[in-house]
């Protein structure tokens, strides 16, 4: 269920969102926000990309675990 392709899929989704954000960046003429279109595009795309990277790295690191968690403070349940 979980595999490397999950990351690829999410990457594609994030890319699509970013492309949409680039194309449909708000051009509010009334607010004279036109000049901040660059700021919006850069900020939005960088934010989603970095959040994706952060998530992807933690996800990938747990995808195929090489070690399992160990704890000695657990009591073994006695089944009767």
């Amino acid at each position: 269920m979980s595999s490397f392709y999950t990351v690829v899929q999410i990457f594609l989704i994030v890319s699509m969102v970013n492309i949409a954000a680039w194309l449909y960046a708000p051009r509010n003429q009334a607010l004279r926000a036109k000049k901040s279109i660059t700021v919006f595009r850069s900020t939005f795309i960088l934010t989603t990309s970095m959040m994706f990277l952060m998530w992807a790295i933690t996800y990938l690191s747990q995808l195929h675990p090489l070690v399992e968690p160990r704890r000695s403070d657990l009591r073994v349940e006695q089944k009767i």
Binding site: M1, S2, T6, Y59, E68, V76, E77
Partner: peptide
């Protein structure tokens, strides 16, 4: 299980398990 961790085959969706 019995004080040992067993993999369930899934990966914690967002973040550290």
């Amino acid at each position: 299980e019995n004080g040992k961790a067993l993999s369930t085959g899934t990966t914690y969706a967002i973040g550290l398990d």
